[in-house]
Amino acid sequence: MSIQHFRVALIPFFAAFCLPVFAHPETLVKVKDAEDQLGARVGYIELDLNSGKILESFRPEERFPMMSTFKVLLCGAVLSRVDAGQEQLGRRIHYSQNDLVEYSPVTEKHLTDGMTVRELCSAAITMSDNTAANLLLTTIGGPKELTAFLHNMGDHVTRLDRWEPELNEAIPNDERDTTMPAAMATTLRKLLTGELLTLASRQQLIDWMEADKVAGPLLRSALPAGWFIADKSGAGERGSRGIIAALGPDGKPSRIVVIYTTGSQATMDERNRQIAEIGASLIKHW
């Protein structure tokens, strides 16, 4: 067993022997301040990774656009098919120029040779490549099948209805392509620590998230040296922004954090800054 596999296998073990965790309302004060600064709703939840206990939450059962955070769930569904012998990570998928959609920095470079399922998941999570996500959605049967996968996990809230990039439209009061912070946090925890996926697939999923290259201005910008984070960000229309993450000190994750916002007129930089400040408060009061 590799060191990384050992780390993920012992996530519940280490967490069980940690000192009790206590909620700190100071972080919620910052979440509410972010709402004021952005002029928009902000949803927040913080779960203990081992027990699933909610440590703090704000608007945990209000719907927010998922945006690209759905790509972690998508690759979880792909990995479940791999575990069941219905898919192979090494299978190569070929596609054409007509398949390319807006923001496809990886797939646009491989029109000639195609990409493997493993490479597509890596591109979808680490670079948020939209064509990679659409190609992977095709392998599982489309958005409705991802929703069905989530329902089978016990998540009857999260739903995907459309493809990239239309799913980022974020129309107010439109339930399409949305989740709730509580539902997303619980589902992410199941994917990373539950028995739904094999140990190898859980490790692969967290490795992809740990290698995320496009979430630097968010929670990662607030992390002290030595902290662990595996995350996936999302951005959408109407001032929408979000991030889902597993993080913790001492090089291992111990909490799940989900943050979503929508309806702001603020710039992307300002949305990023507010999420980073929430992260800084979380870490300060850990």
Rank of each mutant, 00 (worst) to 15 (best):
H24I: 02
H24P: 00
H24S: 06
P25Q: 12
P25W: 09
E26Y: 15
E26Q: 08
T27M: 02
T27Y: 01
V29Y: 12
V29G: 06
V29P: 04
K30L: 14
V31K: 11
D33H: 09
A34Y: 10
A34S: 08
A34I: 11
Q37D: 13
Q37M: 11
V42I: 13
G43Q: 01
G43C: 05
G43P: 01
I45C: 00
L47F: 02
L47I: 07
L47S: 08
D48L: 08
D48E: 09
L49R: 02
L49Y: 09
L49P: 02
S51A: 07
G52A: 12
G52S: 06
G52R: 06
K53W: 05
K53D: 09
I54Q: 06
I54R: 05
L55K: 11
E56V: 14
E56I: 09
S57C: 15
F58E: 01
R59P: 04
E61A: 09
E61L: 04
E62G: 00
E62S: 00
E62H: 00
R63A: 03
R63T: 07
P65L: 05
M66F: 03
M67W: 09
M67F: 12
T69G: 05
L74Q: 07
G76F: 09
G76P: 01
A77T: 00
A77Q: 00
V78C: 07
L79Y: 15
S80Q: 05
S80M: 10
R81A: 04
R81I: 02
V82W: 00
V82F: 15
V82P: 07
V82C: 07
D83W: 06
D83R: 05
A84I: 05
A84V: 10
A84C: 03
G85D: 15
Q86Y: 15
Q86D: 14
Q88N: 15
Q88C: 15
L89F: 13
L89M: 07
L89T: 10
L89V: 02
G90F: 01
R91V: 02
R91G: 10
R92F: 01
I93Q: 02
I93G: 03
H94A: 09
H94E: 06
Y95P: 02
Y95G: 02
N98H: 00
D99A: 07
D99T: 13
D99P: 13
L100H: 12
V101G: 04
V101R: 09
E102R: 05
V106F: 13
T107H: 04
E108C: 06
E108A: 00
K109E: 14
H110S: 01
H110D: 00
L111D: 11
L111R: 10
T112L: 15
T112A: 13
M115D: 13
M115S: 10
T116P: 13
T116K: 15
T116G: 01
V117W: 11
V117L: 01
R118W: 13
L120H: 00
A123P: 15
A123G: 15
A123C: 15
A124W: 02
T126N: 02
T126W: 01
T126F: 00
T131C: 13
T131V: 05
A132W: 03
A132L: 01
N134Y: 09
N134W: 09
L135R: 03
L136K: 14
L136V: 13
T138V: 12
T138G: 06
T138L: 03
T139G: 05
T139H: 04
T139A: 02
I140K: 09
G141R: 03
G141E: 02
G142N: 04
G142M: 02
K144V: 13
L146G: 14
T147H: 05
F149N: 08
L150G: 13
H151F: 10
H151G: 08
N152M: 15
N152W: 13
N152D: 04
M153A: 10
M153N: 09
H156D: 12
H156W: 07
V157A: 11
V157L: 06
T158W: 10
L160M: 07
D161F: 04
D161N: 12
E164G: 01
E164A: 02
E164I: 01
P165I: 01
E166F: 13
E169H: 06
A170S: 12
I171R: 05
I171A: 02
P172H: 13
N173Q: 12
N173F: 14
D174Q: 02
E175Y: 09
E175C: 13
E175S: 11
R176V: 12
D177P: 04
T178S: 12
T178F: 15
T179N: 08
M180N: 12
P181G: 05
P181E: 02
P181S: 04
A183N: 07
A183D: 06
A185W: 04
T186S: 09
T186M: 11
T186D: 11
T187R: 01
T187S: 14
T187F: 07
T187G: 13
L188T: 12
L188N: 02
R189F: 12
K190C: 15
K190D: 14
L191S: 09
L192E: 03
T193Y: 02
G194Q: 08
E195K: 01
L199I: 08
A200F: 08
S201H: 05
S201M: 11
S201T: 09
R202Q: 08
Q203M: 07
Q204C: 03
L205E: 03
L205Y: 01
I206C: 13
I206G: 13
D207C: 11
W208A: 09
E210K: 09
D212L: 03
K213M: 12
K213E: 14
K213F: 09
V214K: 14
V214G: 14
G216R: 07
P217N: 12
L219M: 09
R220P: 04
S221M: 13
S221N: 03
S221W: 06
A222Q: 04
A222T: 06
A222E: 10
L223G: 11
W227T: 14
W227F: 11
I229L: 04
I229Y: 05
A230I: 09
D231N: 02
D231E: 12
K232A: 14
S233A: 12
S233M: 13
A235L: 02
E237M: 12
E237C: 10
R238V: 08
G239R: 11
G239H: 09
S240E: 13
R241E: 07
G242M: 05
G242A: 06
I243Q: 05
A245I: 09
A246C: 11
A246Q: 04
L247S: 12
L247T: 13
L247F: 08
L247Y: 14
G248M: 07
G248W: 05
D250Y: 12
D250Q: 01
G251T: 11
G251Q: 14
P253E: 05
P253H: 12
P253I: 01
S254F: 02
S254P: 06
R255N: 10
V257S: 05
V257R: 01
Y260C: 05
G263Q: 15
S264T: 14
S264V: 03
A266K: 01
T267H: 13
M268H: 03
M268S: 03
D269T: 04
D269I: 13
D269S: 05
E270P: 09
E270V: 09
R271N: 04
R271V: 12
N272R: 00
N272E: 00
Q274L: 12
Q274D: 11
I275Q: 14
A276R: 09
A276N: 13
E277H: 12
I278V: 14
A280W: 08
S281G: 10
L282S: 04
L282W: 04
L282P: 12
I283Q: 10
H285L: 03
W286P: 04
W286M: 05
